[in-house]
């Protein structure tokens, strides 16, 4: 079964290789992986929908029918992985980026496959305003990836971005 995943990853790599843009920019309004939006309450509250003992029927449906997109994300792109991560962690991530280090920042580093977390922290700290003045998660993701892409050194150290020309 592993091979299926390899194939999907490779296919994803091929389609990304065909993209050639300097700045990461996407069509807005695509849904991405559903989990983040599930956990996002109507008032923008990240966690109100995933309360302690109460889980939404959507999640029940998702897990019973196996459609939960996060499980699906072997095929999802780097960008939507980052989207999901920001949706769930925006408050803590903004804090860590401003501080230049932290657990949430390190986890973001894992999501985009960065081997040098300290360099990532420094770079993003410098560009805090560029990322967090954006009003939507997807725009934050795009600016974050663009910042890494434009730094040749960092780009080569972050495997999920290396392939994005």
């Amino acid at each position: 079964m592993k091979k299926l995943v390899y194939v999907i990853t490779l296919l994803a790599a091929i389609s990304f290789a065909s993209l050639s843009a300097n700045a990461m920019e996407r069509m807005y309004g695509e849904a991405g992986c559903g989990l983040g939006s599930l956990a996002m309450g109507a008032d923008g509250n990240q966690i109100s929908a995933a309360t302690t003992n109460g889980l939404g029927y959507n999640q029940l449906f998702a897990i019973t029918s196996g459609t939960m997109n996060c499980i699906d994300s072997a095929s999802a792109s780097t960008a939507s992985n980052v989207d999901n991560f920001i949706r769930g962690n925006q408050v803590a991530l903004a804090t860590d980026i401003a501080r230049g280090q932290g657990e949430t920042l390190a986890a973001l580093g894992d999501v985009i496959g960065c081997s040098n977390k300290a360099a990532l922290g420094q770079k993003l700290q410098k560009n805090y305003n560029k990322i967090f003045t954006k009003t939507s998660t997807m725009k934050m993701t795009d600016s974050l990836i663009t910042i890494i892409q434009k730094d040749d050194n960092l780009k080569s150290q972050c495997s999920a971005v290396t392939n994005l020309i």
């Binding site: 995933a50 003992n53 109460g54």
Partner: peptide, 8 residues
Amino acid sequence: AANIPPNA
């Protein structure tokens, strides 16, 4: 967990 709808 029990399926208690959010904000129930």
